[in-house]
Simulated assay, not measured.
Amino acid sequence: MKKALLFASLISLLLFSCGEKPSTSESQEVTHASGDATSANSVAVISTKTTTSIIDAYLAVKDALVADDAATASLKSADLVSALKNYEIAGSQANDPEELERLQVEATGIAEKLGKADIAAQRESFQALSVVMKDMLKIAGTDRTLYHQYCPMYKGNTGGMWLSTNEEIKNPLFGSSMLTCGRVQETLAVN
């Protein structure tokens, strides 16, 4: 009896901390822990089309990880590496080109690791890449609003983040095992 109660308590805590709602055949509503993005911080970034190919390739990798598709994530990572390598810092309106170049090199190195077939390794690299991408896009700018999303349960409860074009949480760090675990932490809004 005590074990059953402890187990039920742990399941409840897990569901509560990730914002999960029990699924029924009538309701498949997706939620995230912090409510809507209006409670998140908003950061204005410059409007630019120079990062479009990088963002598109990044989001393609993210979507593959959300779908638990390691093969597609590996394939799309090649597009991301190419987009990062072909990014022209000189053509950007960045106010800190030296830092932008450092972030570009770091992001390229991490993106190259996404080519591995092991989805756990891909997810770890993707989380590290997401941190660098957020910093890079804050300097370089973006062509669309992006949501910095955060899951506190990733990597033994140390947390992990990613970027998305949608407020709705679709967690690439856990995929189908915890698809809606997370919340919007910050909004990168085009200035």
Results as ranks from 00 to 15, higher is better:
Ser130Leu: 06
Cys151Ala: 10
Asn86Ser: 09
Asp135Lys: 14
Cys151Met: 05
Ala37Pro: 05
Ala57Tyr: 02
Ala44Asp: 13
Leu13Trp: 08
Ala37Asn: 06
Asp68Ile: 06
Ala71Thr: 10
Leu137Cys: 04
Ser42Pro: 01
Ile11Val: 08
Gly159Ala: 02
Tyr154Ala: 01
Glu124Ser: 10
Ser177His: 07
Gly19Asp: 04
Glu106Ala: 15
Met161Asn: 10
Lys62Tyr: 04
His32Cys: 10
Ser74Lys: 08
Lys76Met: 13
Arg123Phe: 01
Glu167Val: 05
Ala8Val: 11
Phe174Ile: 06
Val66Leu: 01
Ala33Glu: 10
Leu84Trp: 01
Ala128Arg: 15
Asn157Asp: 15
Asn157Thr: 14
Ser176Asn: 15
Arg123Asp: 01
Asp63Gly: 03
Ala83Leu: 08
Leu10Met: 14
Gly156Asn: 11
Val45Pro: 00
Thr108Phe: 01
Gly115His: 05
Gly159Cys: 01
Ala189Ser: 14
Ser130Gln: 03
Ala111Lys: 03
Val45Ala: 04
Phe7Gly: 07
Asp36Leu: 08
Gly141Gln: 03
Arg102Val: 13
Gly115Ser: 12
Thr51Gln: 02
Tyr154Phe: 10
Val43Ser: 08
Tyr154Ile: 02
Lys138Ala: 05
Thr165Gln: 13
Gly91Tyr: 07
Val66Ala: 02
Cys181Phe: 09
Asp135Thr: 11
Lys2Ile: 09
Gly35Leu: 00
Val131Glu: 10
Trp162Arg: 02
Leu75Thr: 14
Gly19Tyr: 03
Ser23Pro: 07
Ile55Ser: 02
Ser39Pro: 02
Ser125Gly: 12
Ile89Lys: 05
Ala140Ser: 10
Thr108Val: 06
Val132Lys: 08
Gly141Phe: 06
Leu137Trp: 03
Asn171Val: 08
Arg183Phe: 15
Leu6Gly: 01
Glu186His: 04
Thr158Cys: 03
Glu167Ser: 08
Asp69Lys: 06
Glu106Asp: 10
Thr72Asp: 10
Asp63Glu: 15
Leu13Ser: 13
Gln93Arg: 09
Asp69Trp: 06
Glu99Met: 12
Ser39Cys: 13
Lys116Phe: 06
Asn95Met: 11
Ile119Ser: 09
Ala8Cys: 10
Leu146Val: 03
Glu29Val: 13
Arg183Ala: 07
Gln104Phe: 00
Thr48Leu: 06
Ala44Asn: 11
Ala117Ser: 12
Leu137Phe: 07
Phe7Asn: 13
Ser74Ile: 04
Ala111Arg: 03
Ser47Tyr: 11
Lys170Glu: 13
Ser92Ile: 06
Ala44Ser: 13
Ile46Val: 13
Tyr58Thr: 00
Lys170Ser: 11
Leu103Lys: 12
Gly159Phe: 05
Ile169Ala: 03
Ala70Trp: 00
Lys113Glu: 11
Asn171Ile: 04
Glu26Phe: 08
Lys155Gln: 09
Met133Gln: 05
Gln185Met: 14
Gly141His: 02
Arg183Ile: 00
Ile55Val: 13
Val61Thr: 05
Glu101Lys: 14
Leu188Thr: 05
Asp63Pro: 00
Phe126His: 05
Ser164Arg: 02
Ser92Val: 04
Leu114Phe: 02
Glu124Ala: 11
Thr38Leu: 15
Asn157Phe: 10
Tyr147Leu: 04
Met153Val: 09
Leu146Ser: 01
Ser53Gln: 12
Ser25Gln: 12
Met136His: 14
Glu167Pro: 04
Glu20Gly: 09
Leu6Pro: 03
Glu29Ile: 15
